[in-house]
Every structure is written in C-alpha cells, then in structure tokens.
Nucleic acid binder design. Structure first.
Length: 740
DNA sequence: GGGCCCGCAGGG
DNA sequence: CCCTGCGGGCCC
C-alpha cells in the first residue's frame, strides 16, 4: 500500500520522520485515531482546508482499506468494528466536538462508560502531578491499567496494547520499534509497574486508608519465580526446596475460585484444567497451599482446598463426586514420615475438623488431583491439575480398609466451568446426592443443616456465594520467610515508602533499588548494568545439557532471564531502559527522602516520645480501617507484618465487586452496604466487564491459557533452581543483616 | 516401584 | 515452639 514510509509524531510530539518538533500549525490530527502527524513529512497531504478537518491518517485509511493483510485478518474484525464505532461518533450531529472527542477517547481506551471515564480521569490527574504524565499510556493518555512494557521501554494499558496488536500493528506506538512476536501474542503485565502506580497513588494521597489498600497487591515479589533451595537444604532440586513466588493476590485462607482480579500475572484467574508440574507449583498459583498435606484449612475456620494424591487407600473417585479420607492416625515419628499404615483412629480435629466446618457451612472447596493418584481414572497423567469447586455434602467416621476408624467426606462438584474430563460446554448443575453404600450403620454422620454459602442460583444459572464468604483471618505476609522481614517497619508509617522501594523495585541481581530499570519481554525488571554485566561475566549462562551435564555456556549466545529462564538474547541486544518506571522510582525516592526529612524534624521536636508516636500511628490506622479484627491489631503492634492492615470492609467490597463482575444481575454484593463509594474498585469492575465483552481479549486470554498449559506440561531443559537459590539466600542474608 | 531421608510450611 | 503433613529426589 501507499504510505508505508509515513510516520506520525511520537508521544512527545516529535515527528518520527524528520525528528523535529512541529508547531501545532504544522501538525494534522487524524479524525479517527486523533494521532498528530507532521504535515511537511506526509507523502500525501490533504488538498484543501476542508479536507484537512476530515483528514484520516495513513494508518487508519490503511485499515479502512477493503483487504487487510492475511496475517491480521483475525484481529481485523475487531479493529473494523472500532473504526465503524469511531465513524459513527464522528457523524453524530447531536454531539459537540468536545463530546465527540471524549467518546472517541473512551472507545480507544477500552470502552469505559462516560461517567466512569470521568472518575478515572480525576483519579489519574491526581497522580499525574507527581508523575508528570510521563507514565501515561500513549493510546488512552491515562495511567496504564494492567500495564505492559515493550522491550523498547514503553508502557501501555494491556487492553490498549491488545487493541493495537489486534489492528495488526507490530511496532511500538511510541517509537515504532518492532514488538517481538512473543510479546504481541502473550503480553505480560509488568507487576512492578502495577505496584509502582499504586505506590505513587498512595504516596501522593499520603492517606493512611489508601496505604491500607495497597498491601493487597503486594505479595512476595522478592521470591524467585521458581522453587529454590536454601543453603541448609541438603538435596538439590525441589526435594527440599522452598517454594517460589506466589503469583496470585488471594489471602492464604481464600475460599472459592481464584478470579482474574487476583491474578495480576495473567489476568485470567486459575482456570479449571490448569496443570502444574508438582505441588510446589500448584501452591504458587494459590490453589492448594500446603505442599505436603492433603487438606488446607483451619479447624475453627473451614477448609479451602484438598488434594487427591492417592495417599489413602479408602479414597474413591467418581469424577463429579468422590469420597475423601481425613488425615492423621499414622505414626510419622522418626524416619517414618511416609508411613502409610494407620495405627490410630482418626477424629474430627485439626484438618479433619476444618473440612467438617466447610461441610456444615457449605463452603466451596477447591480440588486438585495429582498424577500420584493411580487408582482413579480422573487423575491427570502427569503433574497436579485443578479440577474446580466441590462441596462437602456429608461427613462421617467409619472403620477403614486398614481396620482403623477414618474420617470420610462426600465431595460433590459444583463449578461453573466444566470438569476437565467432560465434553460438556457448561459447568455443573445441582444434582441429587449419590448413593453411598458405606453410609449404612456408620457413626458421627454430619450433614449440613443451614443453607450453603456457595450454591446454585437458578436465576443467574450459575454457582455463586449466596452468603458472604468467610472473612480472611490472615495477613498477606508472603514473601517474608520468617514473617519478620520488616520488623519494626510499622512503627513509622512513612518509612514504608523507602522500604517498599527496596522491596518492590529491587533488581533481582544486585538487590538494590533498580538503577536504569530494564523490563524484559517476560515482564521481569533488572538494573540495566546488572543484567548486561551478568551476561558479560557469564554468571547466568550455567545450564544443563540434554544429557544432564552441567556446563557453562552450553549454547553460545543464549541468554536467559535470571528470573524465569526465558531466552532474552534478542531483547538484550537492543534493550531500552523503562524510563517511565525509572520516573516512578525516582519520584518515590524523592518522596521517601522528603518523608525521612519530615521524620527527622519530628524527631527533633518530640525526640523522647518515639515509642508513643508508634502507638499513635497504629491507633490512627486502626481507626481508619473499619472492622479490623483484634489479631490484626496485635500483629501490627508486634510489627511482624508489613503494610498488611486490610480493613475487612475492603475484603467484602472486593469480593462484592468480583461477584458483581461475574454475575451483574443479582448477587450478594447488593446486600453489602458500602459507604464511601470506591472509585478504584469501580474501575476494576468496569475493566472486568469490558474484558468479558471484548472478543479480542477473550481470544487472547484463551490463547494464553492454552500456551500456559502447554508450557506447564513440557519439561524445561534448564533448571534455574540452583541459580535462584543463590539469589534467594543472598536476599535472606541481606534481610537478616538488616534485621540485626 | 518401594523405601529412606530430608527440609519446608502451617496449624495450634 | 513443636508437631504434623496425600512431597520430591535418590538409592536400591
């Protein structure tokens, strides 16, 4: 086509052809996408002024052409719809130019509705003061929602980016550098930037309740992505390894499915059928946390998940329902840790009681099946698979196969997604309880008396919370190996900016706050010098050959991301600093400095009362947060958590929003009164709704899911375990040093 | 495939 | 702090 050599002005108004900065008179704005172009550098200019007003840029007129290149045919439908919608706005005489511009922007920024667009704008503007607007997505000119970072160091909203890709574009909208195929097909959220934006908002608002919200998105970023071995561990690999980073943002005692909101890594939540290599990896996705125990739960609270791994002979698996055996009753002392023989009767206590609580309350219980369950036809061939939500309908005690009393549980599936083994296109419907033969004459039968918390809603045609889910009783202190990583940090709330900087924006190589941050296509962040230096010194090219031999530089010029082992050699050749992230870091560093100066001033004024000051800060925090449980306060005082104060009201609101997002019609969230409408949450909900509406996003998510499953099922040649161990132990030592 | 051994993680 | 836990690696 004609104008392939034409280029618009970049985000700073610099013409990409002549590199000069044209004045407003010399620029022409596209009526469709509102991009500015330098008139002098256009190969074909509009002949008249009237044409100039109605001018359409080469990119848009190219797209409007009858035949899109075959490569982009799939995405073209969406982009044509978009163009049609923009044209409809342009030709709507009932709108003023201002309204047209606004609607057009809304459309391009992901279809947010007018009122919410305003909300978001207001919020955005507040933060822009400290970020100078440099962080804005070039498409929607707002702070990026779910930011993705190109290898050339530019940030966009995931949605805007996907829209761009959907239009067949394969170059950065900011600088026209090529976007790698992998990034185009599988963009990843830059979670450091997510946190950066939240922290920027937090430090800007300087508001304690805003601080309290932030922790929700902060988890154990400092852990490596994969399991790692400590110096203490005697065996290599995962036999005695610590688990890697937890990727989801649910609390450890979260009940029910893990939704997209809690999956900043992929924005899709954990889907039924997802398979992981082992229990460690399953744990990292928050589905089943204990890496040995079969039941996750607390006797006073309920059980959140179970694993079917063939550990007990009495288990009986029928797919949609199964009989599960409780834990305990084995002699595991000394070296009999894997003893399979029952030597004592099981009772309803500890984990067994937790499961009974879930039975009585009708809580949703996540179920994973392991390949180790050899007797079940429903177990996966390899690895550990998430099979969805079940409910415990009954439990009882009976004499087991080994002659000792065991606890028994009847699990029945109740998930909105079809089970991995069915060809149904829908999830479960309420079904009559199966007839369990062994129930005759057993003792201690417990059945649910009250209405279940998780139940089928006929009106919405799906399973959902009919009562509010149990409140989390945990803090989100993942990432601090001993829970004391930031001991004392709460004593001075404003010191947390500095600590967070170090915690969230440290380079995984040097462990310092990133200097010249680079974001890899796999969305990991390092100092430029560290990453380049690491490969110059070959310290990260230690890898294993196919025959299993460890070797240095086994494959020439293959450089792998120190965090996730993805090949980043291409990226490194032309890596660009993420200037926006750098801006945020610098701004936060300034903020931290300011606060530390303020703190020094405070100290001068009341230097004898530091202890009481700490108490005072805590009290304020507690007052700001509604419904904080007592144990929260205790932990706050002992300083064992970071900014982990999460108002339970917030949990409810979050849950409510998730609910609303899933079931817009009639849901429990309507029953929950939330005063002080939370614009941020609103935005989240809207985004989720948008995502559900958008075919493009759906297609990308689906392709991501498939890629993910594939990736999880193939064995990687290179094991980063050892490598990560070095990094991790280094950080541990640093932390210990800091604690001392 | 079974036994042994180890450390991690979480509940209480 | 102690105890328990349907892991994982390796040796036989």
């Amino acid at each position: 086509m004609a104008h392939v050599s034409d280029l618009p002005c970049d985000g700073d108004g610099i013409c990409m052809v002549c590199k000069g900065k044209p004045s407003p008179d010399e620029t022409l704005t596209c009526k469709t996408c509102a991009t500015p172009w330098h008139v002098a550098c256009l190969s074909s200019r509009p002949p008249t002024m009237a044409d100039a007003v109605q001018w359409e840029c080469p990119d848009c007129s190219l797209l409007a052409g009858a035949e899109p290149p075959p490569a982009i045919a799939a995405g073209a439908g969406a982009s044509c719809d978009l163009l049609a919608a923009i044209r409809a706005i342009e030709t709507d005489d009932s709108l003023t130019e201002l309204e047209k511009a606004k609607r057009r922007q809304e459309l391009l920024s992901g279809g947010a509705r007018a009122s919410e667009g305003e909300d978001r704008k207001e919020k955005g503007n507040g933060v822009l003061d400290i970020l100078d607007g440099s962080l804005n997505c070039s498409f929607c000119m707002q702070l990026p929602e779910r930011p993705v970072t190109t290898p050339c160091g530019h940030n966009f909203c995931l949605k805007c980016f996907q829209k761009w890709i959907g239009q067949g574009k394969r170059t950065c909208a900011n600088c026209r550098h090529e976007i790698p195929v992998k990034m185009a097909s599988q963009p990843r959220i830059n979670s450091a930037l997510v946190i950066a934006i939240r922290m920027a908002k937090m430090s800007k608002s300087n508001n304690e309740s805003a601080q309290a919200k932030v922790h929700y998105f902060i988890h154990n970023q400092n852990r490596p992505d994969k399991a790692f071995t400590t110096e203490r561990a005697k065996k290599a690999g995962k036999a005695n390894a610590c688990c890697g980073k937890i990727f989801v943002t649910v609390p450890p005692d979260h009940f029910g499915p893990i939704l997209a909101d809690n999956d900043p890594e992929r924005n899709q939540g954990v889907l039924v059928g997802e398979t992981w290599e082992d229990r460690m990896e399953c744990r990292q996705w928050g589905v089943h946390l204990p890496h040995v125990a079969g039941i996750a739960g607390q006797s006073t609270h309920g059980a959140q998940s179970v694993a079917l791994s063939g550990g007990y002979q009495d288990d009986e698996d029928h797919g949609e329902w199964f009989l599960y055996t409780g834990s305990g009753g084995r002699d595991l002392t000394g070296n009999k840790r894997t003893n399979k023989e029952q030597c004592k009767d099981q009772t309803f206590e500890k984990y067994n009681e937790a499961l009974r609580v879930s039975c009585k309350k009708g809580y949703p219980v996540r179920v994973v099946r392991s390949h180790k369950e050899k007797r079940s036809a429903y177990a996966p061939e390899t690895g550990v698979r998430y099979d969805g939500i079940y409910r415990v309908e009954k439990c009882w005690r009976k004499v087991g196969i080994q002659g000792r009393v065991v606890c028994r549980y009847l699990f029945v599936r109740c998930d909105n997604e079809p089970a991995p083994w069915t060809s149904d296109d829908h999830g479960d419907r309420p079904r009559p309880l199966p007839i369990v033969k062994e129930l005759k004459g057993v003792k201690d039968v417990t059945e649910r008396k009250e209405h279940p918390s998780w139940d089928y809603d006929a009106e919405n045609g799906c399973w959902m919370w009919k009562k509010p889910p149990p409140k989390s009783r945990k803090h989100f202190n993942w990432g601090m190996e001993d829970g004391k990583g930031l001991r004392g940090s709460r004593k001075r709330s404003h010191k947390s900016v500095r600590e967070k900087l170090l915690k969230e924006f440290s380079c995984q190589i040097c462990r310092n706050v990133m200097n010249l941050p680079l974001t890899t296509p796999c969305a990991h962040n390092f100092c430029k010098d560290c990453l380049e230096g690491a490969f110059a010194g070959q310290s990260f090219i230690r890898q294993r050959t196919c025959e299993g031999r460890r070797t240095l530089r086994a494959q020439k010029n293959i450089m792998k991301c120190p965090s996730c082992s993805i090949d980043i050699s291409d990226f490194l050749q032309n890596a660009q600093v993420n200037r926006e992230l750098m801006g945020v870091i610098e701004s936060l560093q300034r903020r931290a400095l300011e606060e530390e100066e303020e703190e020094e001033d405070d100290d001068d004024e009341e230097n004898t009362e530091s202890g009481e000051e700490a108490e005072g800060t805590l009290n304020n925090l507690e007052n700001d947060a509604e419904d904080v449980e007592n144990d929260d306060a205790e932990d706050e005082v002992s300083g064992e958590t970071e900014i982990l104060l999460k108002p339970e009201a917030e949990t409810e609101k979050q849950e409510a929003c998730k609910q609303k997002a899933e079931n817009p019609g009639n849901c429990i969230s309507d029953l929950i009164q939330s005063d002080a409408a939370d614009a941020e949450l609103q935005v989240d909900v809207n985004n989720q709704e948008d995502a559900e509406d958008e075919e493009v996003n759906m297609a990308v998510a689906e392709s991501n899911a498939m890629q993910f499953r594939k990736r999880k099922n193939c064995n990687e040649v290179v094991s980063p375990v050892k490598l990560d161990a070095g990094v991790a132990t280094k950080s541990k030592r640093a932390k210990m040093a800091a604690a001392n």
